[in-house]
Design a protein around this nucleic acid. Sequence first.
DNA 1: TACTGATAATCAGCATGCTGATCAATATTT
DNA 2: AAATATTGATCAGCATGCTGATTATCAGTA
Lengths: 155, 155
Amino acid sequence: MRDNNEMPGHLARRFQQIAVAVFLAEVEEAGFDLTPVQYATLAAIRTNPGVDQVTLAGLIAYDRTTITGVVDRLVQRGLLIRHPSPRDRRARELQITEAGKRTLRAITPAVEEAQRTMLRGLTAKEGTELMRLLRKAIAAGNELSRAPLREAELR
Amino acid sequence: MRDNNEMPGHLARRFQQIAVAVFLAEVEEAGFDLTPVQYATLAAIRTNPGVDQVTLAGLIAYDRTTITGVVDRLVQRGLLIRHPSPRDRRARELQITEAGKRTLRAITPAVEEAQRTMLRGLTAKEGTELMRLLRKAIAAGNELSRAPLREAELR
DNA sequence: TACTGATAATCAGCATGCTGATCAATATTT
DNA sequence: AAATATTGATCAGCATGCTGATTATCAGTA
């Protein structure tokens, strides 16, 4: 039996576990209550106003069924607006509200700090290399999960 | 706003997402139905028969409240036995059953294959380096999550 | 145009993974 | 020994994240 420390899957889980904990701690310290998933959702919608949920899911590599609940909670809190698309009555277009934009702006320093903290054991060069290797491994495995990353298509 | 591909937290989530999908696919192909968490639990108990749940949680860096449910399901399926500790009536000692051992043995090739698959985009050297960097980052952040890795103590 | 297949969103169901609380039992202090 | 603190397990509650199904709608074809 291989040692846990030799299992990429175990290391992936641990690193992600720490990344989430660091994110939540930094964000809470800044006086906000937002999960990594909620943050990514807000940021993606600000950059792509009016996206539908499937496209949004592809942009940040979420499962489409997970998005529903995440968006629900953000709408409930007044950070997003969801309305039917005029072009396709199946789809819902998503817009960020002013409160959502304010939250994003205010929270950004904490998010940046969290990204630094989760690499704090590494030198700058090692941190860059870790990110490169993760990107490369992810690119090769993109299609293996149910929620692959997708480029946005023009509509 | 930083690009997602420059955010270690985003990369961590994606890599973990792919790792889990690969694990489940390989294991299912081998004819089993076991999650990564369940596998790690079985393996840790086989190596440390009679551990209590808190120690187990520390060995594989799980939250103690998560362990309860995981062990429940494994006991239900007859892969584990949970019985009160004679030394401490608060604690439950965990043992792996014969069925549990058989499952572990039978599933090992699939788990090994999954570990290779999740690094398939990298050269051997890059894979080794990725694991080294993850271990280093994790060691530095170990105490930042609610479920840090803990050495087993002799009892 | 009627039919067929694909697509957007949602849902039920299950398994992590966490926060914070409770209960029983043990350990420590006074 | 009595009072206090700590610890092991569990629980309720919430948020991902997935599988597989359903519903409404759209797009392409016969």
